[in-house]
Write a protein that binds this DNA or RNA. Structure first.
Length: 152
DNA sequence: GCCAACGTTGGC
DNA sequence: GCCAACGTTGGC
């Protein structure tokens, strides 16, 4: 079992969308970065736990936890020409992008802010706190996971 | 809205 | 395969 951090803009998908439908898997689609895709496709497994990170918003930070309930499959949005995630260069025969399904586990009473994450020396290696990091799917070590939980 | 830091594209 | 130009991300 592994740990991950998934970035999302809460205007697109926030922890509250999970809270609203706690038993309904959410399709984690729209990852359009090769490094992130490779991790989604090759490493993210059923039952892995995921920090949900809110980016590009007022309160930036980790908002809660979700669990992976379906490992990688072809991201349907890449074939949907009405979707902002449509990719005309991808084909059903050789899908370029993948999605996973995640389900609600927990919403934190307070978002663990980016400032707080940066304040812990133990999290220096976490890509999320590093300047210029644009990974939308990133690994979290068990030690980092525990450190972050204690910050919350 | 600015802009630094990346990532991707495409001509050569 | 290099690299300039362009596009995107994401914190501020």
């Amino acid at each position: 079992m592994a740990y991950w951090l998934f970035k999302t803009e809460p205007s697109e998908c926030s922890i509250d969308d999970f809270v609203k439908a706690p038993d309904k898997p959410i399709v984690w689609e729209g990852v359009r970065n090769y490094q992130a895709r490779n991790m989604l496709r090759d490493k993210v497994q059923h039952d892995d736990l995921v920090f949900i990170y809110h980016s590009s918003c007022k309160i930036i930070g980790i908002a809660g936890i979700a669990r992976v309930v379906a490992s990688a499959y072809a991201d349907p949005s890449q074939f949907d020409n009405t979707s902002v995630y449509f990719d005309g260069k991808s084909s059903p025969d050789v899908p370029r992008w993948v999605a996973v399904d995640v389900i609600f586990v927990e919403k934190f009473p307070h978002i663990i802010s980016l400032d707080k994450l940066k304040s812990s020396a133990k999290l220096n290696e976490l890509p999320a706190v590093q300047k210029g990091s644009r990974l939308s799917v990133m690994p979290v070590t068990p030690e980092q996971w525990q450190t972050i939980l204690q910050l919350g």
